[in-house]
Amino acid sequence: MREISYNDAINEALSEEMSRDDAVFLMGEGVHSPAALVDRFGTERVRTTPISENGFGGTAVGAAVVGLRPVVEFRNAAFLLSGFDQIVSNAAKLRYMSGGQLTIPVVFMLSFSSGLRRGAQHSFNPLSWFANCPGLKIVVPSTAYDAKGLLKTAIRDNNPVIYMRQGMVATTRGEVPRKDYTIPFGSAEIRREGVDVTILATLNSVSMSLAVAEKLAKQGISAEVVDPRSLVPLDKKKILSSVEKTGRLVVVDESYETAGLASALAAIVAEEGFQYLKCPIKRVSTLDVPFPYSPPLEDYMLPTPEKITKAVRETFNTKSR
C-alpha cells in the first residue's frame, strides 16, 4: 500500500469529506496553506480566520447548531486557552442544557508540541482538561492511517470532537488507503500482541512503547501495546481484556502526573479489573513542571523509553499476588 505523511492523510480526509458533504467546511488560522484545499473548494469553505480563538471557536459552534459541519484548525493547543470558554461553556454544554434540543457537529483540531523544544507556552498538552469536560469527544490518532479514518468519523459525528495531534507524531508516515474508510470511536487498537504485560499508550508514547516492547521481547518479556485511539468514548472492554490476559499494566501518557490521563486510565483498571492484576499498576506521565526549553531538561520530564522499560520491569519485581 502507498505510504503518505500523517498531515497528508489529514488533508485527504478533509478533501474527501468536503467533497462528500457541502455542509463541511474548514476554518482557522493558516488554513489557506497548503493551497490545495483552497484551490479545490474556494475561500468560502476554507476560511482563514483572524487570531481570535474564542471568536472563531464560538462561531463554529453557532454554525454547527444550525446545520453546518465546521472543522476548526486551532493549530497549537496552547492558543486554544484564549478560546476555552466557547469550547467548555458552549460546545460541550449547549446540547445538554437545552435538554437535547440541538446538536453541535464540530471538529476542533489541535496539536501540541512536547519534545520539540518549543518551551513552556507552546508545548502544553491539555488532553486531561478536555477529558474532564463531559460533552466533548476526544480522539488521539497516533498513525497516518488513524489520522484519516478518525478524522472522517469525527466530521460525521454529531457531537463536538477534540481531534488531538502531536507534533512528534505528525511528522511520521504510514500506509493509508486511497479509499473511503472510517474508524469507529471507542475502538482501541492492539498495536502489538503480548502475554506478560499491557502497555497502554497514547500518541507519541505508542511508537515509543512499541520500540520498548521489541527490546523487552529479546529479554523474554512479551508486552502487549494497546492504543485507545479515542479517549472519549473509551474502549474499556479491550483495555480490560488485555489486562485480564497479561495481569500487568503500565500506562504511558504525556499529560501531567497529577490528575492526568494515566491516573484516570489506571483508576478504571484498578476499579474494574483489580482481580486480573498480579501487581500494582505503574504510570509513566510528564513530570509536574512547565515545559523547559533546554533539551536535557525537557527530555527528563517526558516519558522516555528508559522510564517505560523501568516501569515494566517494576511490574515484574513487585511480588505477585
Binding site: F25, E44, R45, N54, G55, F56, G57, G58, T59, A60, V61, G62, A63, A64, V65, V66, G67, L68, P70, D85, Q86, S89, N90, L94, M97, S98, L102
Partner: peptide, 25 residues
C-alpha cells in the same frame, strides 16, 4: 431560541456562527 448563555459575552461568537451559516446557505 438558542439556550440562554450564562457567560457574559458568550452569546456573541455563536450568533456570528449562526449568521455565517445563513450566509453560506
Amino acid at each position: 431560541v438558542l439556550p440562554g448563555i450564562g457567560i457574559v459575552g458568550g452569546t456573541i461568537p455563536p450568533a456570528v456562527g449562526v449568521a455565517l451559516a445563513a450566509k453560506m446557505k
